[in-house]
Design a protein around this nucleic acid. Structure first.
Lengths: 173, 173
DNA sequence: ATTATATTGATAATCGTTATCAATATTAAA
DNA sequence: TTTAATATTGATAACGATTATCAATATAAT
């Protein structure tokens, strides 16, 4: 049964690139993680094994892993990307609380089925998908906050900082 | 019937912020666009009316529009964000070609229904969702690239450039 | 062996986005 | 109205994640 390492090796050979100890190590460490990993996290774990490894190599290797389909990159609002294993994992989607950021993974076979139908009707070949349900979890709902949930950034704008003392009153009405 | 301008005005008043001609103008221009708009596009159109307006104000105003729920930001792989109108528009999801980035909007009532069920079963209150189906559109499928679809970035890496002449052979096998 | 090519780490560059700041405009208070 | 307080704005510096560059080294092909 083919595994990630074989697939990566094949890919590299086809591209006339090289299967190096470093690339093996990075793939190895990447596969330790489930779900979405950030570069930072990977880099820390890699440095624990060998601190001499540069961040550029990590980015480069991840790009190769993406190109050969083992990994998928996702962009988030904070400007960072996360990298997700795409081989030998059961697909799942995310339910995210927008207040506390609690995340629940779920899957729903019927939704998947309709996704395929939709793609076909537009002449697309479905490769993957991302579905995020954004809501408020039970706990946060109970502790009921303001109607406008301001971003931290906005709240910290200079003009807001001046009236920091009264902020609480102005944001809940 | 309440409109975007009233809603924004209300929001600003509640936050003790000001309803200025500039903010009106930016909202006005933003609403000219359907679907996803990039900062760049907005800035061009705004500068056509008044070239003295700084990009920082545009970012700031967009953040306010996000905070009051009129706009939603999406992050894309190229590191740019797009801004999408979220009021008085029918909700839709996206079908995206990962090769040419062509985007199709669609909606599917049954999927929406299941989403609500899922949320309820986890005790979440659904506020919004994002669903992106990633695939290959008909055109790109036809022009059939290699099994490994290399990112432009990877192809332009220095080591690849050296064998540029033979690139075509090495990438399709 | 010798040559050609790929890999690596260090670090500079890039680029979208944010923060800072001084000048100006607006609102509130007197 | 005058004055004080606060918000807005534009220019531009700073930031931070990612990428490109380059010289040194490693690996493969001949």
């Amino acid at each position: 049964m083919i595994n990630e390492f074989d697939l990566f090796k094949d890919f590299l050979r086809q591209q006339k690139l090289r299967w190096t100890p470093l690339r093996k190590m990075i793939l190895d460490i990447f596969l330790c993680f489930d779900g979405h990993v950030q570069i930072e996290t990977l880099h820390e774990k890699i440095c624990a094994q060998d601190p001499s490894i540069g961040i550029a190599t990590l980015y480069r290797t991840l790009k190769l892993l993406i190109d050969c389909g083992l990994v998928e990159a996702h962009s988030f609002q904070n400007g960072k990307k996360t990298y997700e294993r795409m081989f030998h994992v059961r697909h799942h989607d995310h339910l995210i609380c927008t207040r506390c950021e609690e995340t629940v993974e779920f899957e729903h076979p019927l939704i998947e089925k309709y996704q395929i139908e939709i793609c076909e009707s537009y002449g697309f070949t479905l490769k993957s998908h991302r579905m995020e349900l954004l809501g408020i979890c039970k706990n946060c709902e109970k502790s009921g906050d303001s109607a406008w949930h301001l971003s931290k950034k906005t709240l910290l704008q200079s003009s807001y900082r001046l009236k920091q003392g009264t902020l609480q009153q102005t944001t809940r009405f």
